[in-house]
């Protein structure tokens, strides 16, 4: 019973981080109809930026916003310089359908290469602001610590902020209108190009938080070659797909579902299945409910 509760707790915390990654995938998908396979690379780069801030200021509470701003800047830069050029240049011929996919993959490789060159492939080492030692009940220790609580609170706060931004502000209306119908948005006076860049920077911010918390929640190490990074790379995408790709709520649900399932598989089936389990979940979701758990109508073919 106790193990069962711990498995749930581990799953929820991990799932919360996957949710953030999924949110950034969804934000980019909604603003430019591109699945950004470089998202995890951008999150990693932001984490290294946060790490530099940590070295200078020795405070997580400075490092986190620095990483978020860094993530937003990197993301906006990529959209402005790179994605716009891509849309202009490779919209015809047999490559057109796959060009964005291949291009973001190339970006992932480039970002990994740049990180390995600049930081010499060394791990990012970050220590969280609060302890990761679990709360104890009697003589047993819960797999839930002040740090995990902080992770959950941060994710929830970020989620609420994004939801308010999207549903209650005119920027949110612009973001949604540009996603659904760029032409009508444009005719209504929305500066769609700017809004797209904004969507990318929000995604970059969300990814930065995911990277930072993934690092402090793991063993404190994060690098292009680490398992944590590969995990973030695929879980973000899978969680977004489970959630139906279109909605932020879906992304969070997808992240939590994925986190819980992986946690249970690792605990009760086999500890080395952490890459195969998400893949199998993805296949099951795609085959049984291709519109995602939250999605309603649009099929996977568009």
């Amino acid at each position: 019973m106790f193990q069962f509760i711990n498995t749930i707790l581990i799953g929820i915390t991990a799932g919360a981080i996957y949710s953030l990654m999924a949110i950034s995938i969804v934000l980019v998908w909604r603003s430019t109809r591109v699945i950004n396979f470089a998202q995890a690379g951008m999150a990693l780069l932001s984490t290294y930026i946060g790490y530099e801030a940590m070295v200078h200021f020795n405070s997580f509470w400075i490092a986190l916003p620095v990483a978020m701003i860094g993530g937003a800047a990197v993301s906006a830069f990529i959209e402005l310089v790179f994605m716009r050029l891509l849309v202009k240049r490779s919209s015809t011929g047999p490559i057109a359908a796959v060009a964005p996919i291949i291009a973001t993959l190339g970006l992932l490789g480039l970002i990994k290469g740049v990180i390995s060159t600049v930081w010499g492939g060394a791990d990012v080492r970050l220590v969280g602001p609060v302890t990761n030692v679990g709360y104890s009940i009697g003589d047993k220790t819960l797999a839930f610590s002040p740090l995990k609580l902080l992770t959950l609170v941060t994710v929830v706060v970020l989620m609420l902020l994004l939801t308010v931004l999207f549903q209650r502000s005119s920027i949110g209306l612009s973001l949604r209108a540009s996603a659904y119908s760029p032409e009508i948005a444009r005719l209504s006076g929305v500066k769609v190009d700017f809004i797209r860049t904004l969507g990318w920077s929000l995604a970059g911010t969300s990814g930065a938080v995911a990277g930072m918390f993934q690092t402090i929640n793991g063993n404190g190490a994060f690098s292009p070659e680490s398992i944590e990074f590969s995990l973030l790379l695929i879980t973000g995408f899978i969680a977004a797909v489970i959630g139906g790709l279109e909605s932020l709520v879906g992304a969070v649900v997808g992240g939590l579902v994925l986190g819980l399932v992986i946690s249970f598989v690792l605990m009760y089936v086999s500890g080395s299945l952490f890459f195969i389990a998400p893949f199998v979940i993805l296949l099951i979701v795609l085959i049984i409910k291709p519109q995602g758990i939250v999605g309603t109508k649009v099929a996977r073919r568009a």
């Binding site: 998908w29 591109v34 699945i35 396979f37 359908a97 796959v98 996919i101 993959l105 590969s230 790379l233 695929i234 995408f237 899978i238 797909v241 086999s270 080395s272 299945l273 890459f275 195969i276 998400p278 893949f279 993805l282 296949l283 795609l286 085959i287 291709p290 996977r300 073919r301 568009a302």
Partner: peptide, 25 residues
Amino acid sequence: ARLSGPYLAGTTLALAIGLPSLANQ
């Protein structure tokens, strides 16, 4: 065959990361 562009890409990406680790099983 049921998937298109980005979905297929992501699925195969997950496979590329996941499959080699099966060798340890």
